[in-house]
């Protein structure tokens, strides 16, 4: 089986975010870019399945400008075989999905993995849009994946429980925590090898933005924390009941 892992390039979680002069995007100065954490887990599981011979090739794809190549190289260093980049600054989730769909129309993949959301726009819709555009089946909130021959065993989280699905390829799987225990870290050898692995760039398909950021602003700073004496901790319950009225 051949797996495509869709990779989003996002600011490191611990990065301080500042809003840019246009008020609609963030200031990219000084930002450390990383693989979106859920995509990193997806990649890890794909590589684990390749280790045990269930998968023949792991390809990573990103829709983004040249800047994102460092993130794709990291994915190659972690163990992906090839990388694809659609050379455009995506305007919204639709533009990401339509461009990923184009890659998949040009080359057949058995399994397409997307992280459940990206830690920048927190849209959590690219996987769904992609499956819709391609008219492929999708299983979302996936927390476990095994491959037995031509069949995929997929564990999916639902509110208050889990489901076990069996599916044939091709399929879009939107994955979350649990799909892999911890993200795989590139080895020194992997970093060396990544330099010579193929990273192909393609031109985008044109699309009208379906959504647009009208404005970004920083949330109001929180008021001071009201401290309750540890000797009188029970008083907190009274405050929550009488003052905050939340219990």
């Amino acid at each position: 089986m051949k797996i495509l892992v869709c990779i989003s390039n996002v600011p490191d979680t611990t990065t301080r975010i500042a809003i840019g002069p246009d008020g609609k995007s963030i200031s990219t100065a000084g930002i450390q870019w990383i693989i979106n954490p859920w995509d990193e887990l997806a990649l890890t599981r794909a590589l684990e399945l390749k280790d045990v011979g269930r998968v023949t090739e792991v390809v990573v794809a990103n829709v983004g400008p040249t800047l994102t190549e460092a993130t794709l190289r990291k994915a190659l260093a972690t163990g992906a075989d090839r990388a694809l980049r659609v050379n455009t600054e995506p305007t919204d989730a639709w533009s990401v999905a339509i461009n990923l769909a184009e890659l998949i129309k040009n080359e057949a993949f058995d399994v397409i993995l997307c992280g459940i959301e990206s830690s920048d726009h927190n849209g959590s819709v690219v996987g769904g849009l992609l499956a819709g555009i391609l008219d492929m089946n999708i299983i979302s909130s996936v927390s476990g994946l095994d491959i037995e021959g031509d069949t995929l065993k997929v564990q999916r989280e639902i509110a208050g429980g889990k489901e076990l699905h069996e599916t044939s390829a091709p399929v879009v799987l939107v994955v979350q925590k649990g799909i892999a225990l911890a993200p795989r870290i590139p080895s020194m050898r992997g970093i060396m090898m990544a330099r010579t692995k193929p990273l192909l760039t393609s031109d985008p398909v044109s699309s009208e933005p379906m959504t647009a950021t009208a404005q970004l602003f920083m949330p109001k700073a929180k008021g001071a924390c009201r401290m309750v004496d540890a000797e009188n901790a029970g008083d907190l319950i009274r405050l929550l009941h009488e003052e905050a009225k939340v219990i």
Partner: peptide
């Protein structure tokens, strides 16, 4: 609803409608 079910359906509906979608 923005839960596991909504997340698994909204994108597919939006793609078929060519509709803008906002979560959260």
């Amino acid at each position: 609803a923005d839960n596991n079910t909504g997340k698994s359906l909204a994108g597919g509906v939006a793609a078929r409608l060519k509709a803008g979608v906002v979560s959260g």
